[in-house]
Design a protein around this nucleic acid. Sequence first.
RNA 1: GCCGGGGUGGCGGAAUUGGUAGACGCACCGGAUUCAAAAUCCGGCGAGGCAACUCGUGAGGGUUCGAGUCCCUCCCCCGGCACCA
Length: 868
Amino acid sequence: MEELYNPQALEPEIQADWDAREVYRVTEDPAREKYYCLSMLPYPSGALHMGHVRNYMIGDVIARHQRMLGKNVLQPMGWDAFGLPAENAAIKNQVPPARWTYANIDHMRGQLKRLGYAYDWSREVTTCRPEYYRWEQLMFVRLFKKGLVYRQNATVNWDPVDQTVLANEQVVDGRGWRSGAVVERRDIPQWFLKITDYAQELLDELDKLDGWPDSVKTMQRNWIGRSEGAEFSLKICDAAGAPVAGDLSLRVYTTRPDTSFGMTYCVLAPEHPLVADITTEEQRAAVEDFVASAKTASEIDRLAEGQLDKRGVATGAYALNPFTGQAVPVYLADYVLMGYGTGAIMAVPGQDERDWEFAKAHGLPIVRTVQPPDDFDGGAYLGDGPAINSEWLNGLDVAAAKERALEWLVEQNIGQRQVNFRLRDWGVSRQRYWGCPIPMILCPDCGAVPVPEEELPVVLPEDVEFMGVQSPIKADPKWRQTTCPECGAAAERETDTFDTFMESSWYYARYCSPDAEGLVDERANYWLPVDQYVGGIEHAILHLMYFRFYHKLMRDAGLVSSDEPATRLLCQGMVVADTFYRENENGDRDYFNPDDLSMNFDDRGALAGATLKADGEPVTIGPVEKMSKSKNNGVDPVHMVEKYGADTVRLFSVSDSPPHQSLEWSEAGVEGSFRFLKRLWRQVVAHASAEGAAAELDPQALDDQQRALYRKLHETIGKVGDDLERRRTFNTAIAAINELVNATSRHVGESAVDHSLRRCVWRHVLLLTPMVPHATQALWAGLGEAGDVIDQPWPEMDEAALTRSSVEIVVQVNGKVRGRISAPSGASKEDVEQLARAESNVARFIGDGTVRKVIVVPDKLVNIVVAG
RNA sequence: GCCGGGGUGGCGGAAUUGGUAGACGCACCGGAUUCAAAAUCCGGCGAGGCAACUCGUGAGGGUUCGAGUCCCUCCCCCGGCACCA
């Protein structure tokens, strides 16, 4: 065993050994309890950053701990390899997206291995490979046949110069990022998955996900946005309430049918199909004008410009309020969205803030139908109260009036109870090249026809010229042209590709049977559901919703048997760091990397200033922010591994804050972790060389001091296990181990029992193995122990070791600590009280006062309440 | 605006069920070692006070023998959603 801790020498050696023996490879074994620990797969952007390192450490600690607890642990890794950055890189570097992606994967795999993560690389998944995406295509074809897929027009950003669709992030200030042309909104046909069919189940089962953070569940609930109300029809009429030609009617959705008597107008969304039919001649020009302006200005643009005023126009038409028999005007306004409910509303300004504002802006009447409290002086009243101005509803509270109004609508046969969701169907078409081809054929006669299953996969050509304007498969007639599988006529392939969320919606299942002839095979049911999923909170809604949805699709296709894909979810915090910048002449900030700066500290050690090494001039210290390229505050993990070794980087990345909180990167902190490992190493080496052959410890032979250390050991075992498994607070687990190491180094006894005791403690470097697997392996071997640390059983806490003969009890007088006493463990209330009163300082504070009450918390605390 | 999570020393954070506030680490200070430095080891480290003590967990109030923890009012920060009828 080396005298000095030398991670650069020992880590690669241990990693090569793991690799050669494939120690993290697992197979299904029904006789053993399984544990599936999964971290969200990375996009192969080029190099690992600190965020990756910390994220994967969280999963690695859990996986390694579970393995030592005896479980059959699956921890896989793969690559979310399709996506826009590869296209951007292709343009910048003149490399085909595939080549750039595969090179990045090779590089990043090497980096992951250097950090020592316990992955089963035999199950690696790369989503841009046909062996992977062919099954995604098959699933899509089957979903199409099942009626869960449809094609419909949807709006995209269209660059009229480049003649291409742009992703939202490619639109800068309303212009195309390359061409600079003003981007248009254009409707083109796109593919949708019917996630809304599963809205209710996706909502209901959130209640069963006890192991998911509340924040994520709340976000999903809001996103699904279930609301209960009524849908009903109103007849279109003239201003006098007389019927118009064509017998038109308007259907509206409301959550407040109780307020129907207060309807003073109706509103249609600008895109509503009824608009053309009901608009009167006098209003036609104004309506067309409004519809055109509503199309150009997107909601988001207007929000950004603060234009939340209620724009709208009268159609000239009227609708008959079935409750009152009165005709109310029908307006058009862009505060009503075509995509929700029926795209039309009854407006009740007395009870709805948006309607109130519109009514005020357009001079429309307002009728209150719920009596507000006397002190209410606002506009629309949204609270509870008795119904007023509502004939047969008058006097009922909101809930009762809702029910009564609903019953009435059903009796009249004009409406019914209706549940609506905000959740939209999932648009999966992307007009990009670097994605999975959508396996559909567009036939002029038969329409959209799926590619026959036996012809899958539809392979995306990888060796292409790609300039970033036109997708190579859209540009290539040979790729496009095919024949219709149904009628045999000439037809064209769909040239859109899937949203990359499609690949990341089922990769976790593919890992279970990576070579299956199908999406998955029966092995999936051994591993699924995932026991612990780890990933960023930014995926709280989209990915984690699609992931749940796709699991249910696979379940309903008979592929998996569970209802939910993951039982426990941990969303890790960001890695953040100080920023440093100077303002340039344009008023923009030029950010500097900490590597290029000299830091100055004040008397108290706080960062007081920094200067650029290059010119010696000061820079401004900015706020602590997420490590990023744009803020130039990133630290290269590889550089850190070269300097300190993987174990130090691993240890620090989980030491300084709990996993779900952000971690402030501090090189001084990294050095602290490094110092700890060096200190541990020195002590174990000293023990192994001087006391190597110590006998097995006999707990009965311990004196008080020795027993105290032995107790500390077992307290630590208990705490670390609990922190790693239940609480997932790795920082406190590490702090506890730190305390144990400190206590052991202070233990100076030299007897044979002391030697045995120390040996017993040092064998428990096992507690650090999940965080620091290389160093603990070397120490384990150095202690003369055989085998791999990663396969040692997790230490068990000895309850008997925790017992104490006497305990220190805090004595309070009127809630303030006035003394400490030593009492036999488990002493009676009376005995403890007597000891407490006898303590001199306590006695002083009781003085002549009358003791009113004595509270005793056994073995912990006494509080003596004194009056006077 | 609505929803969720926070606010504790110079800093990151700990305090798990209402029971000793500040574990552990960083920074800093003092000492040992050294020709010297680095490294290492020992000690100190919330504020005020010689001390006894007093004060102290964003602000104010409350419940309690006892509140960082529970309740009410308010301020600030972070994240999500944002005309969803």
